[in-house]
């Protein structure tokens, strides 16, 4: 058996027919299998390096943590930051200062902090330049301990509202991976969760939104809304009330023209549940307007009262289904 074929087998790149042939060959003799395992090990060296990536390990651990319920504040007092649970608490804790646990990003001498906000939680952070950031559930922010370079640069995955302190000499850049937002001093909301469209709503001032490859650029005015789709298109809409995009900060939800799947994603993060939706339903569009005291049960009831679907709960899992 050629090494190349075994390598393609390991990488999962053989046709079904070829894969079967290799499996048969492997079953024939122990020495064949040992040859495969050895190649797998050498191949695995590189792979393991990828799995050791700080960001990846952090993300995997935060998933595990929320699954195991390890995130009670008591246990994490040693982490130097506190996550404030409860949406009501968030409104008067808006000015709480949070210091993230210290991590060093690879290939970068600058010290970066990482703040992970699990599902059902909420956090507010004051950076050393005076910029204030409120983070919604299921978000991650990487920020340096001090801004030394020409740019003030942070990385976001998830949803956050920014009030950027003015400093014309040092532009503030939010890196969303694939999209950069450049500002001098202004207020805006960003929603950029993995595998969803990204949304930017500008409240005050002006920002530049620029795709990672630098090919597309949009300058936003207040009440402009930019959508960066999962298939990499950059769309702009004017006169969208930006305050609606901030409803999450007080615990409410103002959602216009979102699909049921998008709404479910938001509820999943807010209430730390899992929602399953039938394929036909997930693309249905909804508008909804919930105030800050809304419970999960009320939200589900109101949505289903539209008469377009029914739901049933089973532990932490919720199923939406057709009538």
């Amino acid at each position: 058996m050629e090494t190349e074929k075994l390598l393609l087998f390991i990488k999962g790149k053989l046709s079904e027919q070829e894969r079967r042939e290799v499996l048969q060959w492997l079953a024939q003799d122990e020495s064949h299998r040992e040859r495969l395992f050895e190649l797998e090990q050498i191949y695995g060296l590189k792979q393991q390096e990828r799995f050791s990536d700080r960001e990846r390990v952090d993300y995997a651990f935060s998933r595990l943590e929320s699954r195991l319920g390890l995130l009670s504040p008591k246990k994490h007092a040693n982490k130097l930051f506190r996550l404030y649970s409860g949406w009501a608490a968030a409104s008067f804790l808006a000015f709480a200062m949070i210091i993230g646990s210290l991590f060093y990003l690879k290939d970068d001498s600058m010290a970066y902090h990482t703040l992970l906000v699990p599902a059902g939680e909420h956090a507010t952070l004051l950076l050393c330049d005076g910029t204030r950031i409120s983070l919604n559930a299921g978000s991650r922010l990487d920020y340096p301990s001090s801004f030394d370079g020409e740019q003030r640069r942070v990385k976001l995955k998830g949803e956050a509202y920014f009030e950027v302190a003015k400093d014309k000499k040092h532009p503030f850049v939010v890196d969303l991976q694939g999209l950069d937002i450049k500002v001098l001093g202004t207020k805006f909301n960003v929603r950029a969760y993995k595998n969803e469209n990204y949304w930017v709503n500008l409240v005050e001032g002006g920002v530049d939104v620029c795709t990672g490859d630098g090919k597309n650029r949009v300058t936003m005015k207040p009440d402009d809304q930019v959508c960066y789709t999962t298939d990499h298109r950059l769309l702009v809409k004017s006169d969208v009330d930006a305050s609606a995009s901030l409803a999450w900060m007080s615990g409410g939800l103002k959602l216009h023209g979102l699909t049921l799947r998008e709404i479910a994603n938001i509820l999943e993060r807010k209430y730390n549940v899992k929602i399953h939706i039938g394929e036909k339903l997930s693309g249905e569009l909804f508008n909804c307007h919930f105030d800050s005291t809304i419970t999960l049960e009320e939200a589900l009831r109101l949505l289903s009262e539209s008469g377009r679907f029914k739901y049933r709960e089973k532990g932490n899992e919720i199923y939406f289904y057709n009538q």
Binding site: I10, Q47, V57, F61, K75
Partner: peptide, 25 residues
């Protein structure tokens, strides 16, 4: 001890992932 568990996770996760990827996607 959740902190110790985190260290445990950091050290084993990459290796377990590498092993698991030998079997499944």
């Amino acid at each position: 001890d959740a902190k110790e568990f985190r260290l445990f996770f950091e050290s084993f996760y990459p290796r377990l992932m590498t092993v698991a990827c030998r079997y499944v996607p």
